[in-house]
């Protein structure tokens, strides 16, 4: 993992393997946001993101596009200490 620099997880606003756009995703207009959401479907590039992470006793920073060239499984789940 890279050194932890960001406070919270955020989309980079670009797709994996594509150049990052200059504007911050959260500053985009609602239309732009919908564009990105509508594009999350099978057969399309995954939206890139960065997030703080915990692994093996350490905190660090993970960026999805750092894993290009490998298969990646992303597992979203409701919360730590839940039962399933």
């Amino acid at each position: 993992m890279k050194e932890l620099k960001i406070g919270c997880g955020k989309p980079t606003g670009s797709k994996v393997g594509e150049a990052e756009k200059e504007e911050k995703p959260m500053e985009k207009s609602e239309n732009k946001k919908e564009d990105i959401m509508a594009s999350v479907s099978v057969g399309t590039k995954a939206p890139d993101f960065e997030a703080p992470a915990y692994q093996d006793g350490n905190f660090g920073q993970v960026k999805l596009s750092d894993y290009l060239g490998k298969w990646v499984v992303i597992c979203f789940y409701p919360g730590d200490f839940t039962f399933v």
Binding site: K15, V42, G43, Y67, V72, V73, T82, V84
Partner: peptide, 23 residues
């Protein structure tokens, strides 16, 4: 919260599979 979404992404960064379940 995030619901149970599982995405399989190939080495080119392309989403190949999506599975989303309620909690």
């Amino acid at each position: 919260v995030n619901t149970r979404g599982r995405f399989i992404i190939d080495p080119d960064g392309i989403i190949q599979a999506i599975e989303i379940l309620t909690p």
